[in-house]
Amino acid sequence: MLKFNVLGPLEIRVDNEKSSIPRGPKVRQLLSLMVLRAGSVVPHRILVDELWGKNPPKTALSTVRTHVYHLRKILAQETDRVAGAHLIDTWSAGYVLRAVPEQVDAETFLRLARKGESLLHAGDVCEASRVLSRALELWSGGVLTDVTCGPVLMQHVQHLQEMHMRVLQQRIEADMRLGRHGGLAAELRSLVVRHPLNEWLHGQLITALYLSGRRGDALHAYQELRGILQEELGLDPSRAVQQIQQVILSGGDESMLRHPHNWRWGAAVGQLPNAS
C-alpha cells in the first residue's frame, strides 16, 4: 500500500518500505501541499501562492506544470507504473492527489484524535489513553521538518502542531485520571523544558509530583513556574495554578487535583483561563 507521511520528514512508503522522494525544494512543497489536501482539488492559485508568495514569476503556471510532470514520473517509478501515473489528476482549476485518508499519516492522526477525545468525554478513560497514545506515536518529529514551507503549508503545519499539543494534553489528562502520577512526572519535566510558558503542563507537573508524595518538589516546581512567568512576561501564575498551590499548602481536598478536567483548563498552548 502506498502511504504518505508528513508528521516528521516527508516520506513516501510502499508496503512500509521507504521510497525515494523528490529532491527539488519546490517539488517537495507541491507534493506536501497535495498530500495535506489529498482527495481535494488544489487550485493553481493556491499552488502559486505557496511556491512564490505575493510575487510569482510570469512563468509560474508553466513551472507548476513542469513540477507536476516530474512528480508523476517519480510516483510512477516508485509504484506500479500505471497506477502511479494516475495518482495526480489534472482538473481545469488545479490538481488533485488521488489518495484516501488511510494513506496519509496526518489524516490517521486526526481521526484517532477525534476518537480519543470522544472516549475521554464519555468517561472511557483507559481506552481514551490508549487511542490518544496511538495518535501521538504517529509523530516522528515536527511536521514536514525537511520541507521549506510557504504561507499555505505553514497554516497546515501550525494547525497540526496545535492539534498535537491538544492530543498530548488530553492523553496526560487521561493518565492523571488513571492515577499514573509517578510515571507522568518525568515526562512532564521534559515537556515544561520544551514549552516553558505552557501553564497547563506546569500545573500537571506540580499536581503529579504532589500526588506522587513529593510535596516539596511540587512546591519547588510552582516557584520555578512563577519565576519563569515573572521574568518572561511580568505575570504571576494563573488563578488555576495558584489554587493548585493552595490545595498543596493547606493539605485540602485532593479530589480536584486527581481530575484535571474539573479545573476547566483551556486548550490554548501556553495560556490557561482562570478556574472557576
Rank of each mutant, 00 (worst) to 15 (best):
V14T: 05
S190A: 15
E78S: 08
S255Y: 04
K26P: 00
A99D: 00
L97K: 06
V27S: 09
L2I: 14
L201I: 13
R13H: 10
R214Y: 03
G39Q: 06
D89W: 00
L205S: 09
W265D: 06
P151Q: 06
K26V: 11
L33N: 09
I21S: 06
W265T: 05
R258D: 08
D236T: 10
R81E: 13
R81C: 00
E162L: 13
V42Q: 05
G227V: 04
I88V: 10
L178N: 04
G182D: 07
H44I: 12
S250P: 00
N5V: 01
G270N: 08
Q243G: 08
I244K: 08
V100G: 00
L31G: 06
L10Y: 04
R134N: 13
D253W: 07
L201F: 14
R194L: 15
L205G: 09
I21N: 01
Y222D: 09
D105K: 08
G203P: 06
G227W: 08
V14S: 11
I228C: 03
V48Y: 00
G234R: 10
G234Y: 09
P273Q: 13
D236I: 00
R258A: 11
L160D: 07
E254F: 01
L144G: 11
V41N: 02
C149L: 14
N262K: 14
L51G: 02
K73T: 12
G213S: 01
W91Y: 15
V147G: 07
Q170I: 03
E199K: 06
E231H: 13
L272E: 15
G94L: 03
P151V: 07
R28V: 05
T63M: 09
H259S: 13
S276A: 14
A83I: 11
H259V: 15
M163P: 00
R264T: 10
R258V: 05
M256C: 06
N198V: 10
A174Q: 08
Y95W: 10
R13Y: 01
V167L: 03
N16S: 13
E127H: 03
A93K: 14
D80G: 11
N262G: 15
V35S: 04
K54R: 12
G150M: 07
M1S: 10
L211C: 02
K73F: 01
R81T: 09
R239L: 14
L153G: 02
F109L: 05
L178F: 07
S20G: 12
V82N: 05
E102K: 00
V192Y: 02
K58T: 11
Y69R: 15
V35P: 05
G183M: 02
G142N: 12
L87A: 03
G150A: 08
D80I: 03
S140W: 01
E50R: 06
G39H: 04
S255H: 10
G141C: 08
S129H: 09
S92K: 14
T79C: 02
S133F: 00
Q29C: 10
V104Q: 04
Y69Q: 10
G94Y: 02
K54V: 06
H44W: 11
T79K: 00
D49M: 10
H121D: 12
D89S: 13
A113N: 02
T207G: 10
S62T: 13
H181R: 05
E11I: 00
T145Q: 15
A267K: 12
V48C: 01
N262Q: 14
R189N: 12
P57F: 13
